[in-house]
Design a protein around this nucleic acid. Structure first.
Lengths: 373, 373
DNA sequence: GCACGCGATGTTTACGCAAACATCAGCCAC
DNA sequence: GTGGCTGATGTTTGCGTAAACATCGCGTGC
């Protein structure tokens, strides 16, 4: 047989011609489409190996930074990689290694500051650990949609999942996660069943209420968040508890939906109550709307009414007046999420439990002692 | 028949399996105990095939919804899948198919409304097309960092990339993308070299300036964004051009950095100019700070000074006073990005060129005719 | 001087899936 | 009835990588 047929580039090894009874791959190992200069296909390890005159395994070793490769060989391989523009194929890697080095993040909306900031921190922390982050948006917060996201997720290339969402939407009975995909939840009180990382809603709320009481206000009104939200629920509960603890009567709860617009509507209502001298809004956006409503109704802040928010969005210091609020450390929440989920993957962490991130009261110009105090 | 469920919620079949004359796999197909950390492995196609009594290929056909599978066989396979909790392995799929069905999004920060809203829209559109979105945050906007993100990207499982960033950070010479990975850029004027989708910055700006001139203002001051930003640059250029077109003198440019705080500082400066009756802020956050500064200095809005913003963030309608601004359709931008990048992947779209998404002026209470007009 | 060990490298195999090809049973046309 | 066709299913193969195992050459201890 004309075993000649050697290409100019030439294959290094003699390639062991014989061995007729090749146990398995005996088939014609066709030399792949010529990857010469006008190459279209991406170079594979085999291509690099050929060019460098070594085996594919050695390329793999270099690629993964193994020790035990001769320095000169290593340099040759690196040169070959560079020449061919070699990049490891992540699909093959993932297949072989059984992991994707990717974390999925399921979130309902990116329109709230908290979710976005948390997501950003997660992405940053994950990148730091060599993980990528894949986003799984859920259009509407219904169980069906969430379930849909999870089932999409099941085909997705992720090793773990972080859910930024009220967990009551996760009907645990109907969601079955792929095996060894770990979950960490933000904004939830499901610490009994999941690993949860969250801002210390209660602590922050207590600080806010206490701040107002300390200023001399008889009681504190509350502009709460929407019903579905656990964060809202906890802030409301903590508000009530703090008042009870202090022996004060809790005024009726007023609800918004997190938006500034809803805060405005609530503010119009509150402005009608002459006895209202202090309001704790469950987030800064609602506080913004509240400020506008009070202004329109001629109630001065903080002289007539003190207002305090929650979140400390960057704009809060530019409100009229600058808003006293409770600062949330979203970056820390994100960091802890990633840490927790990676720990769980390595089976180092606990299966469940809640981690709370402390808050900090940021006093600005929207709170003051009541006039008659 | 004997579909009797043998193992309630157990590992796949007994498997141990006759060392039958397995034609191919010859080797003892060990029951695949723990792969990684002691976890059960997921069931593979082969496991399903065994349980259903068919070949792996048939499982594949069912899994991919091929026609040409007998209904009864199909049902059997589906039942087996369900019993084993089978999920296709996306790494293997990607390896075989040569695509990941994932789009990478590189962005510098998620702290600006525009980026976040665009990202959200991208994620939603992508999901709609069956694509996932992987986030690649870049910590600081330096070329080195961006290059780092791109080289991380090269190992990443993505088929295409959308860059939400000023493209001048992409030093084209040093970034070499993996072959076949298409790029679409947002917020850039690099339409000559890339496919660009962006808001019609110039159109929006012209509308804003014209609105103020139409109200009778002699000229319009401008609170611009930071130097590095193309969006800022274009708004500034368009502002100047619109004034020139109208035969008005352009006041000196004042610069902020997008933040409300910087708007406040600029506002203090502007308040000192008695002849300033109208300001166009390059975004709503800066307009917010501006409003506060003007208020503090006793300049009433809109009676003494008209203020107009850009973006139309949800809070803008709750500013004091509610802000007239230029609405950006981020959702559309995101949608077009995804469409463009998928088109390029399929080689249906053009290699380069810019697509502009129109804006809309939203008149509210922060603009009015000047007093003496 | 010879076996042994060790470092460097090569060879085989399997990961899970799906395209390409192979087989096989029925069924119709002539 | 026989050849050919069709639809359903099985078999082979290989994607690019990395673990496990195999080989090879050289220096060292005794």
């Amino acid at each position: 047989m004309d075993t000649a047929e050697r290409t100019p580039a030439d294959v290094p090894g003699p390639t062991t011609g014989a061995a007729a009874a090749a146990p398995t791959g005996g088939a014609a190992r066709r030399p792949r489409a010529r990857t010469r200069s006008g190459a279209r296909t991406t170079a594979s390890m085999a291509d690099v190996a050929r060019l460098a005159g070594v085996s594919a395994q050695t390329v793999s070793r270099v690629s993964n930074g193994y020790a035990g490769v001769n320095e000169q060989t290593r340099r040759q391989v690196l040169a070959a990689m560079k020449e061919l523009g070699y990049r490891p194929n992540s699909a093959a890697r993932a297949l072989k290694r059984g992991e994707f080095r990717t974390i999925g993040v399921i979130t309902f909306t990116l329109s709230t500051t908290g979710n976005v900031r948390t997501l950003e921190a997660i992405a940053t922390s994950a990148a730091h650990e060599g993980y990528a982050v894949t986003l799984l948006p859920v259009a509407v917060p219904t169980q069906a949609e969430v379930r849909g996201a999870f089932s999409r997720l099941e085909e997705l290339a992720v090793d773990a999942v972080i859910v930024i969402m009220e967990v009551h939407l996760l009907d645990a009975a109907t969601i079955h996660l792929p095996p060894h995909v770990q979950v960490v939840v933000v904004d939830s009180d499901a610490g009994d069943h999941y690993t949860v990382v969250d801002t210390d809603q209660a602590g922050g709320t207590r600080a806010a209420v206490q701040h107002l009481l300390d200023l001399g206000h008889r009681t504190v009104w509350h502009l709460g968040g929407p019903e579905g939200s656990f964060a809202a629920q906890r802030r409301t509960d903590a508000w009530r508890a703090a008042l009870v603890e202090a022996g004060r009567a809790a005024p009726p709860l007023i609800r918004g939906d997190w938006s500034a617009e809803s805060g405005y509507r609530a503010g119009l209502e509150l402005a009608a109550h002459d006895d209202c001298t202090a309001v704790f809004a469950a987030n800064d956006q609602m506080a913004l709307g509240l400020l506008r409503a009070l202004h329109e109704r001629g109630r001065r802040v903080p002289e007539d009414v003190s207002v305090i928010g929650f979140d400390d969005i960057p704009e809060a210091s530019s409100f009229l007046p600058p808003l006293t609020t409770v600062h949330q450390d979203f970056a820390e929440v994100g960091r802890l999420c990633v840490r927790a989920v990676l720990r769980k993957m390595r089976q180092e962490g606990p299966e469940r439990g809640t981690t709370l991130v402390p808050t900090r009261l940021v006093p600005r110009a929207s709170t003051a002692p009541p006039r008659q105090a």
